[in-house]
Amino acid sequence: MQPLGYQTLREHMRARSAWKPAEYLIWLIPIAAWFVLPTHLSLLSQIAIMGLFALSLDLLLGYAGIVSLGHGAFFGLGAYVAGLLGKYGWGEPLSGLAAAALVAGAFGYVSSFLVLRGTDLTRLMVTLGIALMLSEVANKMHWLTGGADGLQGVAIWPVLGLWRFDLYGRVGYAYAVAVLFVLFLLARRIVHSPFGQSLRAIKQNERRMHALGAPVMRRIVAVCTLSAAYAGVAGALLAQTTQFVSLESIGFGKSADVLIMLVLGGTGRLYGALLGALAFMAMRHVLSGMTPQYWEFWLGAMLVLLVMFARGGIFGLIDVLRARLGWARA
């Protein structure tokens, strides 16, 4: 039995996943930034890295609807894996990323069974608790991680054996953007696949998916693992481009930051994560340049306003505007 027009459904999904002209333009921005802002390349590569991190959370929260207050755990885990590899003699960057993805993904796989239980509230607290445990471990294992001083002496070999990481951050930036682009393509493919569709359906109505006979638990475990691996790669990128891992990279602050970025940009649309990271980092750069200590106040005020008036984030606002102007999406 084939449910209502299998062929039509396939065409519909293919049409939805086709590249739109605006998307090509978006990916010209990082290339243009290279020429326009050559003195800010280290900030730009941080934006790309945080964009990837926010993307990983979007897979989990935006598509599968699983809340997490502890996503920084995977980021930090990836950062420490790549950093420790670099410190103890294996500085090859791409395999470092792969190792970070493996370790973070494995941890995500194991912890997903804890996340599967309970409601949103329990999930929030369990993810927070797990992240805090991990950050306490990193803090106390001073002999391995350097504790509060951070992990120093990370040596990373040239990318593909050709490009050495330079002081101006040129190679770091190109490397981060390239990794972001490849993983974005993969994530884009995944969310438009039947697997991605089933995640959305789980988010909309988990009970109905159970009733339809979909393997809800297996899907959630899969997306938790995938999202954790992505976060691990983001952390590893940060460790490799800065050749340093701080305790902050695994702390509660990172988990809160990434959640704010994603919500600021808009969940469940991939580009929201990138835009949110860009807006957040740019805002932090400008505001903390003006008042170094008090930028948190403006961040807090922005969050309150966002929740009160613009739950969809920046992209949500754009949608509202388009609807008002009569350009509603087809």
Partner: peptide
Amino acid sequence: SHLDQVLFSIGLVFMAMALADF
């Protein structure tokens, strides 16, 4: 949602911390 409440109250915390510092 719970997520909105979390974000909202984290926002309040950030503001309170910056104000206390100030």
